[in-house]
Design a protein around this nucleic acid. Sequence first.
DNA 1: AAGTTATATCGGTTTTTCCCGATATGCCAA
DNA 2: TTGGCATATCGGGAAAAACCGATATAACTT
Lengths: 98, 98
Amino acid sequence: MDQVEIFKALSNKTRLQILNWLKEPEKNFPEQSDGFANGICVGQIQQKAGLTQSTVSEYLSVLQRAGLVSSVRKGQWTYYKRNEETFEILSRMIQSDI
Amino acid sequence: MDQVEIFKALSNKTRLQILNWLKEPEKNFPEQSDGFANGICVGQIQQKAGLTQSTVSEYLSVLQRAGLVSSVRKGQWTYYKRNEETFEILSRMIQSDI
DNA sequence: AAGTTATATCGGTTTTTCCCGATATGCCAA
DNA sequence: TTGGCATATCGGGAAAAACCGATATAACTT
């Protein structure tokens, strides 16, 4: 739980948007046809973000290293979803630690 | 209340330390002889941070632009203190917005 | 007015971040 | 096993951040 790493991950407009989109996958990624239980795959996120595939892939691993999302590989797809526990811890950390 | 600006301000170890020191001014800045009501002056913070005066001054204005601290000028000193309201808003923002 | 002290700002070097295109890897299908 | 698709990684150019030393400003002192 590296504070600086978390705040760096959150210091980017696109990454904040991605996290926000992942709060309501059904609403924000209606194109995804294979359910939402695993999360959302990189391609869907990339399309919505309007940045290149490499950039979005990199952004997602920044978020993952910070513990803000988790990923599952299924076949050729990697699905990302929010890790709500980290947000709760972070919120409490701001109230008590920082 | 610019989210990215706040998170950038928090993305630095020294700045996080400064915010933490300012939680308990009496404990962390016992050298300050003129009371704590106004906050802590730049020189005290600089000494504790071990960075140059210009760097610490710059850091404090980064924190101020993000709304995390406020400052008062008194004579030749500028006193900084935490702006607790921003931390509360931030904590809630993480629970609901982000 | 001239000197001293506290802070802010300016100009610069080094490191980090942003974002890209190209390439590698992993998985599936024919 | 060849080809295609999804994702990851690599190398790099441009912009921003992390510092610094030098200088400016502002206020106080004598």
